[in-house]
Design a protein around this nucleic acid. Structure first.
Lengths: 149, 149
DNA sequence: CGTGAAATGGTCTGCCC
DNA sequence: GGGCAGACCATTTCACG
């Protein structure tokens, strides 16, 4: 379960370039390419690295509307049920149960305001949802995809 | 600025495996490897694809505490200033200006509650911050890194 | 857990459609 | 815009320290 310093360095390099070759990673962390590969394979097996993705600019893809939607549930609704109902919306990119007065928090992308309004009204109509409160993103200031810690 | 259907398919494949070879992508979208590469290069030039990253499980990396922090600012603080002050915290992975009573929203990861409390008090002590309100994540239900739209 | 070499397979350029 | 061919480079597996 413990990550050593080299593991952290490898993750750091991959976070900045997920397609970096094992050789080039090795050059930065003073390791040979096979050694880097073995470490990456092990990090995947251990579940630290869960995969690789492309970073897409939401606006450039045409997703101009971004919001966080707080969900207030009627009865005590389980996280599993919230997940099952909300993951069917492709617009929902993240969902959490949270502390505070709301029960859950959804991160939502939509192509425009009309689209967002439609999705919001559909989510609001889910049987377990009592009400919602939306916070719309005005300007995305920072989007990191890794932590330098 | 327009993405055609093949571009969307390529992004979809890359979102599931950011290290997929151009040949294997081409097999799925009925294109040759060089054709896929040319499209990916063009998507990068146009700013649709901003890069490639590794997907890391926060818990497996030791980040067990996750929170959203709403920022209430004293005077009218510009987004630029909020960015300049908050990006110095490696724990802050995302920042937005938002609608509603709060001025900005921060997405924060910390190794534990003590760590989070320390970061929160440091952020609260920033001169432009009047007060904060934190929503702690209990269970991450869903983390998508792409939209199927 | 590391290295170095050898076989495989992917990338990428130039050229043609 | 896409396909093809070939040179080049990365990945991957192996034996070995």
């Amino acid at each position: 379960m413990t990550l050593d310093d080299v593991d952290r360095q490898i993750i750091q390099v991959l976070s900045q370039d997920g397609r970096a070759s094992y050789g080039s990673i090795g050059a930065k962390v003073n390791l040979s390419a096979p050694a880097v590969k073995r470490r990456v394979d092990r990090l995947r097996e251990r579940g630290v690295i869960t995969g690789f993705t492309v970073r897409v600019d939401p606006a450039a893809r045409g997703w101009t509307t971004e919001a966080y939607v707080e969900l207030f549930c009627n009865r005590r609704t389980s996280g599993d049920e919230i997940l099952r109902r909300t993951e069917r919306y492709p617009e929902v990119v993240a969902a959490f149960t949270v502390t505070g007065d709301a029960d859950a928090l959804l991160h939502v992308f939509a192509s425009d305001m009309r689209h967002f309004e439609r999705v919001l009204s559909e989510i609001s109509a889910e049987p377990f949802v009592a009400r919602t409160r939306s916070v719309l993103v005005l300007s995305p200031l920072l989007r990191r995809d890794y932590l330098g810690m």
